[in-house]
Design a protein around this nucleic acid. Structure first.
Lengths: 257, 257
DNA sequence: TGAATAGTGTCTGTGAGACAATATTAT
DNA sequence: ATAATATTGTCTCACAGACACTATTCA
């Protein structure tokens, strides 16, 4: 079996969180952004370019353990939502040799992060805009802006499988592709599961939760309809939060735990 | 990077198809079964036990190419629906050493298979029964019967992620687990996509299509409701098939291509 | 007072579930 | 005639979309 051992095995992390930015308008809710953690490469190839946090999966650990190790290193967090997204093993995806990448999506509550980020790490706000059948992704951390377009290729209608072709961009390796795959996986699950709550702090208002759903689904939701649907998934506590010049709201928490 | 190269990389195939068995009752539609292709191991470990078709991913091919190669070898088919299911890389899943398995789900139209199966390969009909919160899987090829139970472990409610713990069984390696993961992936997609048509022959009746949906969803569907929902996804041809002692039906084909 | 969000009520339309009724064929 | 499936019709109910209305606070 020795002849089959000719490559490296790595984990790449799509760490998603919500960035909450206070607005100038004191009455308004703080604006929410979907954010992803990127790190700046310190070595060739792609030196000084941004990439996903990741690393080799060692001989004595599983990909999940490696992923948790890397996540802990980057965010200080344990026990977060992790899900396999996709394997990339194209022959020339890394100029150094054959590297197999297994990407994991991590959904975290950014308010839990207490430590400073590593010096080479930075949160990028992520926005997706649809242009006819294509997507435009914009990532920005306030300093750098990374933009690229994504063409969704439908292999055939029956398969309903998509592969994503990304325009040239300033991300390392094929990470632009991994990001869009992670985003789509995230979006797909928003409607059918409760994974959104992994992004929320323990206590939140229904308005904030609605903001996050709108962010992920890319569309405005109708207030009363949203409340109806979400009602049986949350517990309304008797804590009340008075934010600004408007009616105070009750704090809620997720019901499922 | 040399120190990271210490394992093998393989693809395991979940090849699903529909088995159509004529009933004794000449009036009735042929009974349908969901079937999966297994092969009997000829070497240790697990000699003479059944397992998923699979093999090493070679240095000059991607996992997808390897999967297509293996699929071609086992079924003679090209261009079929393929989808990554999950990576398994637990340290001791193979007694020979560290073996990383990437499982692929393949959905095929069994009526397209013209050649004989390889001597060590066999189709197993698959049935799933729910017992309280657990599942029982039964696989049979008419000779051998393989049964096992599956406990679904919810890590936590919020994550809506399941892992599957299988009872001791007569399958090789962790393949009992791979099968249930494939089944669940298949079921999940039945309602939201058109992948079912990958399992169907080019022309079929609505009754047959309904049989397959019922099989995959594990429940009876209401005739008129099914026709309503499926109507805009199929083209009704003017070909008519006269099967048995009942009203003949129009043949349909998938609209999406 | 007005801006902004919180929270409730209600009308409407769509679509799935349920089931009845009719059609057609070979035995 | 009967068994079995094919095909159509229709009533009901649940639920999402739409939108109006009231509540509450602070600048």
């Amino acid at each position: 079996m020795k002849e089959h051992f000719n490559f490296a095995y790595t984990s790449d992390l799509l760490i998603f969180g919500i960035n909450s930015q206070a607005e100038n308008n004191i009455r308004a809710l703080s604006k929410k952004y979907l954010s992803i953690l990127l790190v700046k490469r310190t070595k060739e190839p792609f030196k000084d370019k941004w990439c996903l946090p990741g690393g080799f999966i060692l001989n004595d650990e599983t990909s999940k353990e490696a992923t948790e190790r890397i996540l802990k290193k980057e965010t200080g967090l344990n026990k977060v939502y992790l899900e396999q997204v996709k394997v990339h093993d194209e022959l020339n995806r890394d100029p150094r040799g054959r590297v197999i990448s297994l990407s994991y999506m991590a959904l975290i509550d950014r308010t839990l992060i207490k430590e400073e980020l590593n010096s080479e790490a930075s949160w990028f706000d992520l926005s997706i805009t649809e242009k006819n059948n294509n997507l435009k992704i914009t990532l920005t951390n306030g300093e750098d802006i990374i933009e690229y377009k994504v063409k969704r290729k439908t292999n055939d209608q029956k398969s309903q499988q998509y592969s994503y072709e990304t325009s040239p961009n300033d991300l390392s390796f094929d990470h632009a592709e991994l990001i869009i795959e992670g985003l789509m996986t995230l979006r797909d699950k928003v409607n059918n599961t409760d994974i959104v709550f992994n992004l929320m702090p323990k206590y939140f208002t229904i308005g904030e939760l609605k903001q996050v759903y709108e962010l992920l689904l890319g569309k405005k939701l109708i207030n009363s309809a949203f409340r109806r649907v979400i009602a049986n998934r949350i517990l309304v506590t008797d804590k009340i939060i008075k934010t600004g010049g408007h009616r105070p709201s009750k704090l809620c928490k997720y019901k499922g735990e």
